[in-house]
Amino acid sequence: MVLVVCGIILIAVNIIILSVTSKNRNSSNSTGRIGITLVAPFQEVAAHLLRFAEDIWNQYFFLVSVAEENADLKRALSRAIEKNNQCKEISLSNIRLRKLLNFQKKIANKFLSAEVIGKDPSPWFKSIIIDKGQYDGVKKGLPVVIPEGIAGQVIDVSAHYSKVLLIIDQNSAVDVMIQRTRARGIIKGESKGQCLLKYVLRKHDIRVGDVVVSSGLDGVFPKGLRVGYVSGVIRRNAGIFQEVTVNPYIDFEKLEEVLVILNPPKHVFVSKQ
């Protein structure tokens, strides 16, 4: 009888502790950094050893398809040069039009490159550990991107390492919009590396293949960064929202290097007198 009562009390205490810690997950606490500080140096060594072994394999043993790949890359480069030229033209016209409309100049982003040294040990959560921390200028809440699109957000920082919550995690949420129709929604992580675009009104025309970009309204990610493309749309007969599935552009399984934006846009709400 005593054992059963003790068991029930233990379970109750356990549930209370878990609900308290889950609510305070976003607040900074030093206890959460102890594990990272202890384990991350070993993870860094292991990651470097793996990359060293991979480099040796790629550079010395795996040269069979290099000539073929070289030809492909040359073709891709010539296409990229052409596209770059077009982009320069668009950029110049954009500057002219902004001047005409008296728009504020966008501040150029300051990036810090970081290497991924570890991933979340649990299959139920999606996060990574990077080799840059407080001493490198990383702060909690900074956005993390790669050229393909948005990767996630810094959620915990220790002296030399940081934990990044990926956009495919179920606890992640990013304010986004469909590039073609400008329909807004919140993108949330879903299992199996996909995302769900929530709160998109049924009236908006959304098609498979539409590009999803950040809206910049969450105050975390700069506007216009690519997130993914629409892979499925379900419009039910009832309800005011439609169910939209989004496939991220980033292959999170192969994430090795990321960029931390050190000066993300900040919304300052000042009332004009």
Binding site: N14, I17, L18, S19, T21, S22, R25, N29, T31, G32, R33, I34, G35, I36, V39, G118, D120, P121, S122, W124, F125, K126, S127, I129, I155, K163, L165, D169, N171
Partner: peptide
Amino acid sequence: NLSTGPLG
């Protein structure tokens, strides 16, 4: 500490 789940 390494995971993003609630502490505990």
